[in-house]
Every structure is written in structure tokens, then in C-alpha cells.
Amino acid sequence: MIDFHLDRASGVATYLQLVHQVKHALRLGLLRPGDRLPTAKDVVARLAINPNTVLKAYRELEREGLVVGRPGMGTFVERTLGGASPAARARLHADLSRLALDAREAGLDQEDLEALFASVLGDTYREEIA
């Protein structure tokens, strides 16, 4: 089970914040297929938000095929995100850690490295689309 939280100053629509948090949890393996998402009542009792907002977020996740609603039982994770195998994931994690250390030794701070990484990501995925 995951807990939702809200960044009220972010300007991101509340239902999208919930959608992003579920996807993030799926990518990190915190949510796995078969897990139940919190009920709308649980979420609104914690966050003081409109229940329709929670339902809207769950509908969006359902539309993307990530969860499925079973009437009377709840909403369940259907598939996960971040397709790589655990081994590949661990290797990439180690590679990136090494790279982050390298960058720090070369004098980059966190924001420098984030900007560099974002720019590399942009280039890589743009090539893929082209």
C-alpha cells in the first residue's frame, strides 16, 4: 500500500499528482501487480480532497492499462512500469552512481548534473523519434 501526498504549491493538477505517484511507485517496484490501491475514502480522509479527483486519477491509470477496478473490491495494479529486468536495473543503478561520483569530482553540483542529464536524455529520445 502506498500513501499519497500533495504538493499544493506545485501548480500540477491534483489528480495528475496522484497519477504520477502511482507510476513512480510502479517504476520503483513499491507497487506490484495484484496490489490494491487505497480506496477513495482512505485518500480523501487523509488529504481532504474531493473523492471525484481520486476516481479521476484511477480512471486515468485504468485507461493506460496500469490498474483495473473491480466493483465492490477496489482498484488493483494490473501491470508494472519500467520494463527492465532486476539485474539490468541494478547494473544501471551502479553505472549511474559511478557517473554521479565522477561528476562531483569534476566540480559539477547536483543541479549541473541534472541539467546535463536532462539534455542527454532529450538528445537520446529525440534521435529515437526521428
Binding site: L6, R8, T14, T39, A40, K41, V44, A45, R46, L47, A48, I49, N50, P51, T53, V54
Partner: peptide, 27 residues
């Protein structure tokens, strides 16, 4: 929070007046 839980359980329609817009944004 209590009001929203009640709405989630009962599905009732709620109308409330306020002059503080910040209270209304998420509810």
C-alpha cells in the same frame, strides 16, 4: 477531511459557500 469522507461514502451532492478560495481548490 471529514466532509470529503462522507461524500466518498454517500455520494451526496454538497453545496458550500465560502469567501476563501484556497479552501475550495482541492475539495
Amino acid at each position: 477531511r471529514a466532509l470529503m469522507s462522507t461524500v466518498a461514502e454517500s455520494g451526496m451532492t454538497v453545496v458550500f459557500s465560502s469567501h476563501v478560495v484556497a479552501d475550495l481548490k482541492d475539495t
